[in-house]
């Protein structure tokens, strides 16, 4: 592995100032250290932000909750407020990685983890995300785990996070702090860029900007929330497809539905048209299938990922059957509580 300087940041502004070309923030390091050992990422400076004060709390904020960027995935999943009011977030987090990894991984780091596309990981192969302009080996290569939505000719890599899928369904924002201490809040759709012809640029974070918190809006009262992840083994595998759903009912009709999808998108995927299609409708299988068809209208799967079309449709049906009460709730589907 390439030698690097290690800088322990004592303050946010320290960290911001140390950033720039060849620098990389490290918190849990659960993804970065692997990438550095394989020299997929080879920073000159690693800035340790784990000692920064004030970024490790889950606290009430406006009508919702503010999650410090350094809160570990395990602590966030176990937080009583999250379990009671945003259960889809807990479910999504514990569906990812392993207990050991979740103990180390941070909230901000989870959002910024890199794709697991095998060609990104193999430095002998062309990859526009790792080495801009070299090409995309996934074309004509192995492609079972690739995204089918939001892809470009230059990149089809799927975003691997489970947590971020739940955050999209919950319509969370991230708080970003700049080098001069100013903060801005943006939705995840703004945070994550589509790959286009620059798949190496994954976010809209400017130089010196650091994600300092995730902000959850007011809890969706009376909602049923579900995270349904389908993978190649029962634990410790990335999603083939996943569905996060936050649903409220008005009598026997769907009042609101906020869905997000993992394993299918170049970023944690949300499609407002899918949510709108469900609004005010009587839930049944045909409606859910129609929602899936809307989701998949623009899908462009690699031949080996073609199965994700039927699989995400069936996972969506399974999740919504439980979330709308057509089928009894099983593990992964929870009714939100009114208070902690």
């Amino acid at each position: 592995m390439k030698s690097f300087d290690y800088i322990r940041a004592e303050s946010l502004s320290d960290a911001s100032k140390a950033m720039g070309d060849g620098a990389q923030l490290i918190a849990g390091g659960t993804n970065l250290l692997d990438l550095m050992k394989l020299q997929i990422m080879s920073p000159d400076r690693v800035i340790d932000i784990t000692r920064l004060p004030g970024l490790s709390d889950v606290a009430p904020y406006k009508d919702g909750v503010k999650i410090g960027a350094l809160v570990s995935n395990s602590d966030l999943a176990a937080d009583p407020k999250i379990k009671a009011l945003y259960p889809v977030l807990t479910r999504a987090i514990v569906a990812g990685a392993s207990g050991q990894i979740r103990n180390k991984a941070s909230t901000g780091g989870n959002l910024l983890q890199r794709t697991r596309c095998p060609y990104f990981y193999d430095t002998s192969m062309a990859c526009n995300k790792r080495a801009p302009g070299t090409g995309c080996s996934a074309h004509g290569g192995a492609g079972r785990m690739l995204a089918i939505l939001g892809t470009s000719d230059d990149c089809m890599a799927a975003h691997p996070s489970d947590m971020a899928v739940a955050l999209r369904a919950l319509e969370a924002h991230v708080e970003i702090t700049s080098a001069n201490g100013e903060t801005r809040e943006v939705g995840l759709d703004t945070l994550y860029r589509l790959p286009g012809d620059r798949p190496d640029l994954e976010t809209t974070l400017a130089e010196g900007e650091i994600i300092t918190a995730v902000i959850l809006p007011a809890p969706v009262k009376g909602s049923v929330q579900s995270y349904r992840k389908v993978r190649d083994r029962a634990s410790y595998a990335f999603a083939l497809v996943s569905v996060a759903a936050v649903v409220t009912m008005d009598g026997d009709k769907i009042d609101t539905a906020s869905l997000a999808f993992g394993g299918v998108g170049v970023r944690p995927w949300k499609d407002a048209q899918v949510d709108a299609l469900l609004h005010g409708q009587t839930p049944d299988q045909a409606l859910f299938a129609k929602a899936a068809d809307r989701l998949l209208a623009q899908a462009k799967p690699h031949p080996e990922a073609e199965f994700k079309r039927p699989l995400v449709k069936r996972a969506l049906i399974a999740a919504l059957r439980e979330a709308t009460g057509l089928a009894p709730a099983t593990a992964g589907t929870d009714k939100t509580r009114d208070a902690v």
Binding site: P118, Y119, S124, G141, R233
Partner: peptide, 25 residues
Amino acid sequence: LSHDPRTGHIVSRDLANYHVPAHAD
């Protein structure tokens, strides 16, 4: 094991992507 169809190279080269059963299986 999955192989690149052009080079024959193994693309599932770690235990996160080569799936032996986990405890939950």
